[in-house]
Amino acid sequence: MAANRIITIANQKGGVGKTTTAINLATSLAAIGEEVLIIDLDPQGNASTGLGIDRRDRSVSAYDLLAGGASIAETAMASVVPHLSIVPSTMDLLGVEMEIAGREDRVYRLKKALSGEDAARYSYILVDCPPSLNLLTMNAMAAAHSVLVPLQCEFFALEGLSQLLETVSQVRDTVNPGLDIQGIVMTMYDARNNLAQQVVEDVRSHLGDKVYRTLIPRNVRVSEAPSYGKPAILYDLKCAGSQAYLQLASEVIQRERSRKAA
C-alpha cells in the first residue's frame, strides 16, 4: 500500500526556495493533523538541518534508503514539529549515483522504498530534490504522484521552467505515466518590484490554473528560521512568509480534494 500522496519538490535551479517550501509546507500540513514525511534527497541536507536534525545524529539516512535497501521505518526520524518526520540527508548521497548506476532498478529505488506499509502511515510524503536533474531527482519523480515547482520571481524563471516541464514529460513517457504537475508556486515575491509582478503575470499566462494563487514573499524571518533549526511557522507564525505557507497548504489540500472528487 502506498502513501496517500507523494509530492516531489523540484527545480534544477538552486536558490529558488525548494527546501524552504518543503519544510514550511510540510509543517503547515502537520499543523492541521496530517501525518507528513519529508525525504531529504539533497546531499547538502538543508531540510534536515532546518528541522533541527543534527548531522551527528544522522546514522541512517536517505543514502541507506536508496543504496542499502533500508526501510522508511529504519530511516525516518521525528522532527521538532509534531506529526512531521524526516528521512535525513548526508553527504553520502553524493556517491549514491555511482553505486546504483549499474542496477536495472536504479530509477525505481525510492519508489520501491515507498511501496511498503511503513510509508502508508503518512498522508503526505514530500521529497526535497537537489538543484539538478540527476538520478536522485529522477528517483523522486519516478516515485511521486506529482511535482510541485517553486519558481523564483526573476527574469530567467520561465526559461528554467520549460526545461523542468520537459523533464517531467520525459519521465511521464518513460518511467511514471501517472506523474502530474501539482502546481507552480511563485517564491521570493517583492510587491514593490515591477519585474516580479511581470514574471508572475507571464507565468500565469503560460500555465494558468497550474500556478498557485498564493505568492511567497521575500521575508527575513523565513530566511532566519533555519539557523535556529526551526520552520518559519514555528519560529514566527505571524510573519508574512509563514502566513503565505499556511495559505499554500490550504491550496494544496483544496487541489487534492478536487482531484479526488473528479
Rank of each mutant, 00 (worst) to 15 (best):
I9W: 04
A196G: 04
Q152I: 08
A244C: 07
V87T: 05
A142F: 07
L151C: 10
T20V: 06
P88G: 08
R56Y: 03
S123M: 10
S89I: 11
N219A: 05
P130Y: 12
M91Q: 15
V252D: 02
P131V: 11
H83K: 10
H145A: 05
K18N: 04
V16W: 00
D54H: 08
S85R: 14
L110E: 02
A30W: 01
P88I: 04
S242Q: 01
N11S: 12
Q197M: 09
D209P: 12
A26P: 02
S242F: 01
L158N: 14
R5T: 06
D180Y: 05
K260F: 10
L84G: 03
T27V: 10
Y108E: 09
P217N: 03
N219R: 01
A62I: 09
S123D: 14
V222I: 06
I125T: 00
N24D: 01
I6P: 00
E154V: 06
E99D: 09
K111W: 04
D173I: 13
L110V: 15
E256C: 04
Q247D: 09
T187H: 02
G102M: 08
L237R: 15
N194C: 04
L179Q: 05
L148S: 02
A26E: 02
N219M: 00
T20G: 13
C239V: 10
L37C: 06
V127D: 00
A232W: 10
T167D: 02
M91E: 15
T27Y: 01
A62E: 04
A30T: 02
E97Q: 13
I53C: 02
K238N: 13
I86V: 12
L29Q: 04
L158F: 08
K238Q: 11
Q198A: 15
G208D: 11
S162E: 14
A22T: 15
C153M: 04
D202T: 09
Y122E: 12
V203G: 06
H206K: 12
V87P: 00
K230E: 15
S61Q: 06
I72R: 04
V149Q: 06
K112C: 00
S71V: 05
P43S: 13
Y108D: 09
I7V: 15
V81W: 03
P82S: 08
S242Y: 03
M98W: 14
G14N: 07
R255S: 05
L246R: 15
E159C: 09
A196V: 07
P43H: 12
A225P: 09
V211N: 07
G50S: 06
M91I: 14
K13P: 10
M186R: 10
T174Q: 14
S85E: 15
Q243V: 15
C239K: 11
M141T: 04
E256S: 11
D105S: 07
L29Y: 07
G183A: 06
N194S: 13
T137Y: 05
D236M: 14
M138S: 08
H83S: 04
V203C: 08
I253N: 01
K230T: 11
Y245M: 09
A76K: 15
F156C: 13
K260W: 07
A101S: 14
N176G: 11
D190P: 04
V168F: 09
H83N: 14
L65V: 14
G208V: 13
T20H: 01
T21M: 03
A144F: 07
N193F: 02
A143N: 03
R172W: 12
